[in-house]
Amino acid sequence: MSTGPLLKVEGLRVAYGHIEAVKGIDFELHEGRITTLVGANGAGKSTTLLALSGLVAKAAGRVVLDGQDLTALSPHRIVASGMVQVAEGRATLTTLTVRENLELGAYTRRDGRAQRAEDLERIYTLFPRLKERADGLAGNLSGGEQQMLAIGRALMAKPRVLLLDEPSMGLAPIIVQDIFRTLREINKAGLTIFLVEQNVRQALKIADSAYVIETGRIVLSGSGHELLGNPKVQDAYLGG
Rank of each mutant, 00 (worst) to 15 (best):
residue 95 T to I: 03
residue 236 A to Y: 01
residue 219 V to S: 13
residue 145 E to D: 13
residue 225 H to W: 00
residue 112 G to P: 09
residue 71 T to D: 03
residue 4 G to I: 01
residue 129 R to H: 13
residue 61 G to H: 02
residue 88 E to L: 02
residue 10 E to F: 04
residue 126 L to F: 01
residue 66 D to H: 05
residue 17 G to W: 03
residue 113 R to Y: 04
residue 97 T to H: 05
residue 138 A to V: 13
residue 198 Q to N: 06
residue 214 E to K: 08
residue 164 L to K: 12
residue 68 Q to V: 14
residue 228 L to A: 09
residue 28 E to D: 15
residue 56 V to P: 08
residue 189 A to R: 14
residue 30 H to L: 01
residue 103 E to A: 13
residue 18 H to G: 13
residue 148 M to I: 08
residue 166 E to L: 07
residue 201 R to D: 00
residue 139 G to M: 08
residue 194 F to K: 01
residue 141 L to P: 11
residue 208 D to W: 00
residue 134 A to E: 15
residue 76 H to G: 03
residue 167 P to I: 08
residue 183 L to N: 02
residue 232 K to M: 13
residue 128 P to T: 12
residue 217 R to A: 11
residue 201 R to M: 00
residue 179 I to H: 11
residue 184 R to E: 04
residue 220 L to N: 03
residue 240 G to I: 14
residue 49 L to E: 00
residue 23 K to G: 07
residue 167 P to S: 10
residue 28 E to N: 14
residue 199 N to G: 01
residue 167 P to E: 09
residue 175 I to V: 15
residue 104 L to D: 02
residue 186 I to N: 10
residue 51 A to E: 09
residue 36 T to A: 08
residue 100 E to W: 05
residue 33 R to T: 14
residue 161 V to W: 00
residue 166 E to R: 10
residue 8 K to Q: 15
residue 149 L to Q: 14
residue 26 D to E: 13
residue 33 R to P: 03
residue 84 V to P: 12
residue 21 A to Y: 04
residue 138 A to S: 15
residue 138 A to K: 12
residue 27 F to I: 09
residue 175 I to K: 11
residue 26 D to G: 12
residue 98 V to W: 07
residue 78 I to L: 06
residue 151 I to Y: 07
residue 36 T to G: 02
residue 99 R to C: 10
residue 18 H to E: 12
residue 16 Y to P: 09
residue 104 L to N: 06
residue 214 E to C: 02
residue 200 V to Q: 02
residue 34 I to L: 01
residue 205 K to C: 00
residue 58 K to T: 14
residue 155 L to G: 05
residue 36 T to R: 02
residue 116 R to T: 15
residue 94 T to M: 07
residue 163 L to D: 04
residue 103 E to C: 08
residue 121 E to G: 15
residue 105 G to V: 08
residue 236 A to V: 06
residue 66 D to F: 01
residue 195 L to I: 08
residue 152 G to N: 11
residue 19 I to S: 14
residue 65 L to I: 08
residue 2 S to C: 03
residue 135 D to E: 13
